[in-house]
Simulated scan of single mutants.
Amino acid sequence: MNTSQLNIAFFGSSIVSAYWNGAATYYRGIVKALNTMGHNVTFYEPDIYDRQKNRDIEDPDYCKVVVYQANQEEISRLIEQAATADVVIKASGVGAYDELLDREVANLKKENNLVIFWDVDAPATLDRIENDPSDQFNRLIPQYDFILTYGGGQPVIDAYDRNGAQKCIPIYNALDTDTHHPVPPEERFEGTLAFLGNRLPDREARVEEFFLKPAAELPQHTFLLGGSGWEDKHMPQNIKYIGHVFTADHNALNCTPMAVLNISRDSMAKYGFSPATRVFEAAGAGACIITDYWEGIDFFFEPGIEILVAKSGDEVTEILRTLTQERAREIGEAGYRKVLAAHTYNHRAELLQSIINKSLSAAHVQAQFNDLTL
């Protein structure tokens, strides 16, 4: 088998729309890097949640996008198409018929292909299946050649191992240098601290602690809140709510305020080693990042030098009381150097390619041996 050029079928939430879909940036970075390496990717995404009406990119030239109607008949047809691919990937959280897709992709396993489950929210998946032994995914895990995750580190690897995974490997978020980079500041995004994130149940309490509380303590400073779902949230008057921010505006939002804030979801903080995509977006724009604490931060950035870390809202407040523009610029520049050196999607895709190539080559050799011994 020629593993230098593979046909890859990828079932995910959406690659063309970031609307209520934080995984879009991750998918784009990985798929674009795979295309640069010579692989052909077909990305299958359902037409749900008004994502197609809120696209932020047209169909990209680095993959074929298949938008499908979410019904069983259409999914069966697409599974039949995907059966011819060298690698078939099912991501978590597609959003429609996930259980059916989990099962059907696992059933595509053959001697000379790979079937992969790519968990873009491993903490949520693991909490779900460990709390419900009857969940069908428990018996599907061993059928996949690989469980890939976009974060989680050793705690997630250990948890998947306990649940029968053949091999679990984190492929962390990263920077897409084509789309996220330094740009001139824009007046509409001026302020002391900006936070961008959709309103989610397992993040809201941490947003109250790490963002709303410091804003209330520092009424003379301007805070910016971006993301969907916060319209009816009670917040201090010095917070400027700017709603959904399209990907094209992320660079300006990251480059303009003195600092940007990363707030983990509860489940991500629990497992650690789960930097949000926006951490790398902000670092790639040269932003001074303040993050809530989670285990594994120093695996990606050096605290105090390349990123600032707070364990409470009070610590965010104290950081902002003493942070100067000059200091913020130094931290942003150091984080920018680190992300370019170690955390781009090319780095991640090289790891993925080595995993796939070694596995397919071994499978090809085994198939030839089986043929000879028949």
Rank of each mutant, 00 (worst) to 15 (best):
A205Q: 15
L351T: 00
N138V: 01
N112V: 03
Y62P: 13
V339Y: 05
V16P: 09
E350D: 05
V115A: 00
F273M: 12
Y293F: 14
L340C: 09
F43S: 06
W230E: 03
E45R: 06
M268T: 03
Y293G: 02
A276F: 03
N71D: 14
V88F: 04
V245H: 01
G332Y: 05
N346D: 12
Q353M: 14
E73T: 15
G286K: 09
K270D: 03
E350K: 10
T277S: 10
G284Y: 08
Y172E: 13
N357R: 11
Q220L: 02
N357F: 00
S14Y: 08
Y97C: 15
G153H: 10
F195A: 03
E302A: 12
G284K: 04
F195G: 10
Q368D: 14
N107F: 07
Q325K: 11
L148I: 05
I297K: 01
N112R: 12
Y345R: 01
D59V: 06
W118V: 01
N40W: 03
T344I: 07
N71W: 07
G12P: 00
S17K: 12
A122C: 05
N21P: 09
T149W: 01
V88Y: 01
E315M: 00
A24R: 01
Q136I: 13
M1S: 14
E217C: 04
I355Q: 09
I289E: 02
G243W: 08
H364Q: 11
E295D: 14
Y172S: 14
E302P: 01
L108N: 09
E318A: 05
L374K: 13
T149F: 09
H181V: 07
W20P: 00
P257I: 06
I129G: 01
D176K: 08
N254Y: 10
A82P: 11
S76C: 12
E333Q: 15
L108K: 11
Q5K: 14
K270M: 02
Y26L: 13
A83D: 14
I307V: 00
D371V: 00
Q154D: 12
G12C: 15
P219D: 07
R348V: 09
E99A: 15
A124Y: 09
P185H: 10
P182V: 13
H39Y: 06
E295T: 05
L148N: 07
H364W: 11
S14L: 12
A215T: 05
H364V: 02
P133V: 03
I157S: 08
T247P: 04
